[in-house]
């Protein structure tokens, strides 16, 4: 277990190093950072001075080393557009995205798992057919269409929910949360629905497929033959065995949601990292883009490591030290 953890952490570190190299190359080779950062009428002295300050005169490996050292300390340089440290910008935007994504993940699990279980257990009920049909819609309608439709109905026609922004936020230290104010929660509803619609259908279909598979296994038949109640068989025995793939997919999806909440954030003008990235792209704000890249990869690596840890909690077969405890018959 410990060895496994160390191995995973090392792998994660390697991934991060590779990503850092790409981010570094972007900063160093996509356009000339010196030209990008200085006003057009800068003097040669100013250029030389900035070049020295940015460490661009050093050799490439040294520069990369410096980049990594800075990145580890959370220092990704200064945004071209805002003239503020990139780390500050990201720290401002991160809570908004994380709150939205986690609300969406919780919602997709809370709705998707029961729907999946239901459709697997009652394959022929009309409700299952309805869920199946709805899930097809959910999987095929693109996010921006859902978002715009929601805005049209609930903001423009009914005027119930705000069409953009985060509402009022409360500062808890460096974390700004919208969950503690009414307007914050109201603003969260539509983006979360938009973001989770696809996830709900994905989780539902995954749970359904896994559940159908598990219900056919011998240990479920044997559990029934032992006279256990349906509730125990379905939820205690069957559902728990379907959780492995659900955990894997949910983990991957959290990463994907954080990384690709861009569309939802753009539709709802949600002040999160996605919107920051969109703005950075349109202004060729390389430091923000490379910091975003590193940030998102870090989140992916962290979540995947957590997912691997969760396997140990769910599946006892992984917990046992190898080569122990096999007795002959």
């Amino acid at each position: 277990m410990i060895a496994f953890l160390i191995r995973r952490l090392l792998q994660g570190a390697m991934v991060m190093l590779a990503v850092a190299f790409i981010a570094f190359s972007m900063f160093r080779f996509v356009g000339d950072p010196v030209t990008n950062m200085l006003p057009q009428d800068a003097t040669l002295e100013q250029r030389a001075e900035l070049q020295e300050r940015l460490g661009l005169n050093a050799s490439l490996p040294v520069q990369f080393g410096n980049f990594v050292t800075n990145a580890v300390q959370g220092n990704f340089g200064v945004s071209y557009r805002n003239q503020r440290p990139v780390s500050d910008l990201i720290a401002e935007r991160l809570p908004a995205t994380l709150e939205m994504v986690f609300a969406a993940v919780v919602m997709s699990l809370v709705i998707g798992i029961p729907m999946g279980v239901y459709t697997a257990l009652r394959r022929d009920s009309w409700l299952s057919h309805l869920f199946q049909a709805l899930s097809l819609t959910g999987i095929s309608v693109p996010t921006f269409v859902t978002g715009i439709l929601l805005i049209l109905v609930f903001s423009v026609w009914l005027n119930w929910l705000p069409s953009f922004g985060r509402g009022e936020v409360v500062e808890l230290g460096w974390w700004s949360t919208g969950l503690l104010t009414v307007s914050g929660v109201k603003a969260l509803i539509m983006p979360v629905i938009t973001l989770s619609l696809f996830q709900i259908t994905l989780i539902m279909r995954l749970v359904r497929a896994e559940m159908l598979e598990v219900l056919k296994t011998d240990y479920i038949r044997f559990a029934r033959a032992r006279g256990l109640t349906n509730r125990v068989v379905n939820f205690g025995h069957a559902l728990r065995n379907t959780l492995m793939p659900v955990i894997t997919i949910t983990g991957l999806q959290i990463g994907a949601l954080i990384a690709f909440a861009i569309i939802t954030e753009t539709v709802f003008q949600w002040p999160g990292m996605g919107l920051l990235f969109m703005q950075a792209v349109s202004f060729v704000d390389i430091p923000v883009m490379s910091a975003y890249l590193v940030m998102v990869s870090l989140i992916f690596v962290v979540i995947n490591t957590i997912v691997d840890m969760l396997y140990f909690v769910v599946d006892p077969r992984l917990r046992v030290d190898t080569g122990q405890n096999k007795t002959g018959a």
Binding site: D218, Y219, A223, A225, R240, N241, P316
Partner: peptide, 11 residues
């Protein structure tokens, strides 16, 4: 049942 390897819930 026939197969003891699959008759018990592994979890």
């Amino acid at each position: 049942f026939q197969d003891p390897l699959t008759s018990l819930n592994p979890l």
